[in-house]
Design a protein around this nucleic acid. Structure first.
Lengths: 183, 183
DNA sequence: CTCGCTTGCTTCGAAGTCGAAGCATGTCAG
DNA sequence: CTGACATGCTTCGACTTCGAAGCAAGCGAG
């Protein structure tokens, strides 16, 4: 795990180069740990409820937001493409866990509602999910650690959210507001 | 983001129930931040080098371990199924970035070597990768934060590694060695 | 030696994911 | 009103991933 430092151990000439050992360690540990956690969670959800992680997240969002959500609201933060959501929503609907219907406000929008079956399944799967997260993520951490972790990752997440064109990248940012002068 | 606490706010009766607000926040922030980071990294690698994150990781491993690696060694920690590696290795080989050949020691094993082209490409893509990680992950963190993060995640990762049957789950744990004794 | 189990890798089919393109509705300037 | 662009969702095709099954090579007891 050291080749990430590039040809020269610690160049400063090129400007952007090399990560020190500490940075690398944090980066790799972070990525691998989350990967492992996801994998385990996925497995638990699959065997206990026949759900994928994505599907679980969708149900969680719907259960949380007691009412209905539009597809777009639902997608935000869970899936990185709208088509992916359409697919998953189709599965969940076919399984009778959610319902899709037109929105009264906006004829284009599709409102998604969780069914009683959906809520029931969610409730049935949740304890196992929590158990896995607890066992894998929280067990090796003290309360103080946890506080730190939450703080750090919240900052990082907010920083990331601010920067990039998130999941639903605006279809096409008006390509050139001034130059083409709203032609 | 509160439904994760289950029907009752803070049950102790059921045993395993409910995560407090702090735990939830840490968990969600962690998962989302890593998701965002992966997504951005993926994009950078794709546009700058035509590589997926997995492929990049494989090249990184090969570049790091200067010599050759077997498929299994290569897979460990990168991919969760062996077949996935076979597929990716096939792509990388077709692209001329790696080479596969028989192992002298073990006739079953396949040794993978990175080619000069592979090394070159890796070197060309690396700076951009580092830049993205720096910008998204390290920028909003102080040196102290980073130290904490590395410490925490290393502990978590090691804890996880110890627990579960990792990537290459043993083919089939002897189904019944001595009733359920040693298992 | 040889049968039986393990290990290393590949093949195959079933998902799931994404981006581009498409359709329908909404919105706004003129 | 109307044309042009924005927005919400779906369809489609390409790609990736995984798990199960399969093949070939090691390994160990009898």
């Amino acid at each position: 795990m050291g080749r990430m430092t590039g040809p020269h151990p610690d160049t400063g000439a090129d400007g952007v180069q090399a990560l020190d050992r500490q940075q690398l360690g944090a980066y790799f540990a972070l990525m691998e740990a989350v990967g492992l956690l996801q994998h385990q969670v996925e497995q638990q959800l699959r065997t206990e409820g026949g759900l994928s992680y994505v599907q679980f997240q969708l149900l969680a969002r719907l259960a949380d937001a007691h009412g209905q959500l539009t597809m777009t609201q639902l997608a935000d933060g869970v899936v990185y493409s709208r088509s992916g959501l359409t697919y998953q929503a189709g599965l969940l609907e076919k399984a009778g866990l959610i319902t899709r219907g037109p929105s009264p406000d906006d004829e284009r929008a599709t409102m998604v509602t969780i069914t009683d079956d959906g809520l029931a399944l969610f409730g049935r799967v949740l304890p196992g999910h929590i158990q896995v997260v607890r066992r894998l993520l929280f067990d090796p951490l003290s309360g103080d650690d946890l506080h730190h972790l939450g703080d750090l990752m919240t900052r990082v997440r907010d920083h990331m959210r601010a920067q990039p064109p998130r999941s639903a990248a605006p279809r096409k940012r008006r390509p050139n507001p001034t130059a083409a002068a709203q032609a």
